[in-house]
């Protein structure tokens, strides 16, 4: 990588929301189930794919739809992508959607970052700490 560039790494491992809403089981349905299987809510197993987009200085530079892992698509969606950028000040816009039932993006973050040459900026996602993180 040239000396005057910095590196942006996008990486997350995140379980999208359930692909559809849970449903309350009726009393008849529960009665048909084995006693140990009588969960009141019937939830789908599959999870939503996670869509992520990045704009750099107003220009789209990355878009990816990460499918859930697992044969039943019930695991985490993972993304790893790195791209070098010219060092200096940049305007970053990151959008993420982890819910197939909603159009658009339910997480957004815009930030102006000043990247020194050789610096690594990591874009991650952690729902517990507020969603999209930059470090």
């Amino acid at each position: 990588m040239p000396a005057d560039q910095a590196l942006i790494k996008l990486s997350f491992s995140h379980e999208g929301k359930l692909v559809s809403a849970c449903r309350q089981r009726s009393a008849e349905e529960l009665a048909k189930l084995a006693p140990n299987m009588r969960a009141p809510m019937d939830c789908p197993r599959g999870r939503s794919p996670v869509t992520v987009e990045i704009d750099l200085d107003g220009t789209p530079v990355y878009r990816h739809v990460a499918k859930p892992s697992g044969l039943s698509e019930d695991g985490a969606s993972t993304v790893y992508h790195r791209f070098p950028v010219q060092s200096g000040e940049h305007r970053l816009a990151i959008r993420l959607n982890d819910d197939a039932r909603n159009a658009g993006f339910n997480y957004r973050r815009e930030e102006t970052v000043n990247l020194k040459p050789g610096k690594v900026l990591v874009i991650d996602f952690n729902q517990e700490t507020g969603g999209i993180t930059l470090q």
Binding site: S11, S13, S69, G70, A76, T78, Y80, V122, Q135
Partner: peptide, 11 residues
């Protein structure tokens, strides 16, 4: 890998 190994070296 369910979780990418590269995440061990992100930061």
């Amino acid at each position: 890998f369910a979780t990418p190994l590269i995440r061990n070296y992100l930061s």
